[in-house]
């Protein structure tokens, strides 16, 4: 759906966040951008979302795939909910910004909340929810417009491990069910290997794509114990180390 061609981005002040990044994103992909802090993966995500523009190169959307508001959902590292609004009103926000009335939006809002396992929490304020539940509201908010593309910027990095594992499994189930494309930024090798079909390794200063790896992991109940998962983690770790030494 998207071809990224030799994209570069330099911030005022001289930091070169991205240099000569090329990447192709296909419909239905689950792609992880993996790398240490400062490798430009979040910058690349913002470029894809249209929240920032490249200084060099281009992002070319396939015909009929260009993003209109609501076609892409964005999930940040923090849940970034409106603290004064209920879970329901937070999820309603994207539809509200597009001018949809509350009664018309409510079925979609309820459905999105049910999708992330928050049926029954419609009237809860963010303060009263746990970190994991807040992140679920944030994901529901990204899903409510039925986006073709879901962009996630280290969404589970601030959660405890148990909550993170549960949310990762639920995200995979959602991806299969909804059939959307996901670009997932992470600095966790385990997370990238567990979730993604394609793993793009990035190195910092300047941010560049070092290597791309495919995952053929068959997801089951015990994926984290699967030797194939362990082998993939080991392979990605080695590749990352080599890439960082070379860089």
């Amino acid at each position: 759906m998207l071809t990224i061609r030799s994209v570069g981005r330099r911030f005022p002040g001289g930091v070169e966040a991205l240099r000569d990044v090329s990447l192709r994103l296909g419909a239905g992909d689950f792609l992880a951008l993996l790398g240490p802090s400062g490798c430009g993966k979040s910058t690349l995500l913002r470029l894809i979302a249209g929240l920032d523009r490249p200084d060099a190169g281009s992002l070319d959307w396939d015909a009929g795939h260009a993003l209109a508001p609501g076609d892409a959902g964005f999930v940040f590292q923090d849940a970034t909910l409106l603290p004064w609004a209920t879970a329901e009103d937070n999820v309603f926000l994207p539809l509200r910004l597009r001018g949809m009335s509350r009664p018309r939006a409510m079925p979609a809002v309820r459905e999105a909340l049910a999708h992330v396992g928050l049926g029954g929490f419609e009237k809860a304020r963010p303060r009263t929810l746990s970190g994991g539940m807040r992140m679920r509201v944030s994901i529901a908010r990204a899903l409510v417009t039925r986006p073709r593309l879901l962009l996630m910027d280290e969404p589970f990095a601030a959660l405890d491990e148990f909550t993170r594992h549960k949310l990762q499994a639920d995200l995979l189930a959602l991806w299969r069910e909804l059939g959307c494309t996901i670009v997932f930024v992470t600095h966790s090798i385990y997370e990238a290997c567990f979730l993604a079909r394609r793993i793009v390794l990035m190195t910092p200063r300047p941010g560049r794509v070092a290597r791309e790896m495919a995952s053929a992991l068959a997801h089951g109940a015990d994926t984290r114990l699967d030797p194939a998962y362990a082998a993939l983690v080991a392979e990605v770790s080695r590749s990352m180390e080599r890439a960082l030494e070379a860089g």
Partner: peptide
Amino acid sequence: PAELGDLFRLYGGGRWQ
């Protein structure tokens, strides 16, 4: 937070919204 501003932009939220 700047992220919320980004979110409003992403969904085409106008200045007054």
